[in-house]
Deep mutational scan, measured.
Amino acid sequence: MIVFVRFNSSHGFPVEVDSDTSIFQLKEVVAKRQGVPADQLRVIFAGKELRNDWTVQNCDLDQQSIVHIVQRPWRKGQEMNATGGDDPRNAAGGCEREPQSLTRVDLSSSVLPGDSVGLAVILHTDSRKDSPPAGSPAGRSIYNSFYVYCKGPCQRVQPGKLRVQCSTCRQATLTLTQGPSCWDDVLIPNRMSGECQSPHCPGTSAEFFFKCGAHPTSDKETSVALHLIATNSRNITCITCTDVRSPVLVFQCNSRHVICLDCFHLYCVTRLNDRQFVHDPQLGYSLPCVAGCPNSLIKELHHFRILGEEQYNRYQQYGAEECVLQMGGVLCPRPGCGAGLLPEPDQRKVTCEGGNGLGCGFAFCRECKEAYHEGECSAVFEASGTTTQAYRVDERAAEQARWEAASKETIKKTTKPCPRCHVPVEKNGGCMHMKCPQPQCRLEWCWNCGCEWNRVCMGDHWFDV
């Protein structure tokens, strides 16, 4: 396979590697080409510095992935760790964990309700045991953590790749202090920090972006993250068709209702045909949960890209028209025109101005929308079919299609509260000796007794199943 190397943020060049090629071997190839010592090179990928003893497969490097290699003399205490030698983080029983690669970060837990604080980093599902597709590297999971809308060759929703760059020099040479644990960490600028490894760059702020994971991409090709779309790892039924499908869209209502993408497309087109989208002054033209839940309008309007190009163009047109109407304007009634106009409040005669090729020149009556006339309008008909009709959803289907309910059931079956801080902690095999993952707590306690870890627990039921 081919990976592209950008040395000291210059133009990239291809390097041929195998899945079992080590990072140090990659350094040696680059060092020979650039005429520099291999031990002064640092390989940066997806916000993480890659260790010498890791392989291309370990690092989730795919065909035509772009890695950054910078030349920086080692500072005291760094060289041993980078070589894969006596790194205290690798000691058996050590409590410190390697910062998780962005290629394996899962933010789907952050669609849980606000009262489930902490689960994004504490609760991990076991539903990723799908067998890898044919042709994928051994052991590589097909679980997708992110979804994007690819405006490039795909023109559809695709699995996405999370990447990070330095907000100062805009190069992907920043190593994160810690990985993101929720969508806010990724979507809110300057929320996460790190250290830029580019020479002479003092940058410390992280800037995240997404790429389409279905095809090789260049540095400049980015895609918009659709953070309401998630892999259906909890096997929730769709609120409309009641099938279990994946991926799904999880509405931001209190129940976190789930809808499959085909039904979401149908829901949007139906509402669009009836012009029953909601115009929100802050958000724009949007839709609420299909069950009509309060405070559930979709905030990231790129989710409506699921409509496809033709329907999305209609959505944008109707949204612009609705904006004009909300501002007190009118639409030209001549067939084939429909231009938005903003006449004076007491102006009865409205002319669709033909300047700049935008208007048709038609003069019409503001009251009856017919060709302009003197005197009273002959008839004014009330528009028919403008009443909002509820999208029919079966109550039982709505009850079963809740992301929140599956989460709470998982928590109930696989977790116990920490005796000190009461945060839910998952036990997935292993011994009875637990350690609270909350940095402010870190209590060592017994899963069996529910009390602080002691010699009695150690001698009596340390390794009970």
Rank of each mutant, 00 (worst) to 15 (best):
residue 372 Y to T: 06
residue 391 Y to S: 06
residue 78 Q to F: 14
residue 147 Y to T: 02
residue 410 T to R: 09
residue 155 Q to I: 04
residue 246 S to A: 03
residue 93 G to N: 12
residue 105 V to A: 15
residue 248 V to E: 01
residue 23 I to F: 02
residue 427 K to F: 14
residue 329 G to F: 03
residue 405 A to N: 14
residue 403 W to Y: 06
residue 406 A to G: 10
residue 180 P to R: 01
residue 272 L to Q: 02
residue 215 H to K: 01
residue 295 N to H: 07
residue 180 P to S: 00
residue 424 P to T: 13
residue 367 E to R: 12
residue 267 Y to V: 04
residue 27 K to F: 00
residue 358 L to G: 15
residue 20 D to L: 06
residue 225 A to S: 07
residue 63 Q to I: 04
residue 316 Q to P: 00
residue 330 V to D: 04
residue 10 S to H: 14
residue 364 F to W: 05
residue 175 T to P: 05
residue 415 T to E: 11
residue 146 F to I: 06
residue 447 W to T: 04
residue 210 F to E: 00
residue 70 V to T: 03
residue 229 I to T: 03
residue 114 G to E: 14
residue 362 F to V: 05
residue 245 R to S: 10
residue 251 F to Y: 04
residue 129 K to C: 10
residue 83 T to S: 13
residue 289 C to G: 00
residue 216 P to Y: 09
residue 353 E to H: 08
residue 427 K to L: 07
residue 271 R to Y: 06
residue 90 N to G: 14
residue 442 R to V: 05
residue 114 G to L: 09
residue 43 V to A: 12
residue 397 A to V: 12
residue 231 T to D: 09
residue 386 T to A: 14
residue 233 S to A: 10
residue 55 T to Q: 06
residue 81 N to F: 15
residue 463 F to Y: 04
residue 147 Y to F: 12
residue 90 N to M: 14
residue 6 R to D: 04
residue 306 I to D: 00
residue 70 V to R: 02
residue 238 C to G: 01
residue 401 A to Q: 03
residue 217 T to R: 07
residue 188 I to L: 11
residue 433 H to R: 04
residue 368 C to A: 02
residue 24 F to T: 07
residue 454 N to H: 14
residue 152 G to F: 13
residue 317 Q to E: 11
residue 113 P to G: 12
residue 294 P to I: 07
residue 204 T to A: 08
residue 435 K to L: 06
residue 369 K to R: 06
residue 410 T to Y: 10
residue 388 T to K: 12
residue 45 F to H: 13
residue 108 S to Y: 06
residue 392 R to F: 10
residue 45 F to W: 05
residue 169 C to L: 00
residue 176 L to H: 02
residue 244 V to P: 04
residue 408 K to H: 10
residue 422 H to W: 06
residue 440 Q to N: 15
residue 308 G to Y: 04
residue 375 G to V: 04
residue 165 Q to L: 08
residue 373 H to D: 02
residue 371 A to V: 10
residue 128 R to W: 10
residue 221 E to G: 08
residue 25 Q to W: 05
residue 427 K to G: 09
residue 343 P to V: 10
residue 456 V to G: 15
residue 120 A to I: 03
residue 341 L to T: 10
residue 326 Q to Y: 06
residue 323 C to M: 14
residue 3 V to R: 03
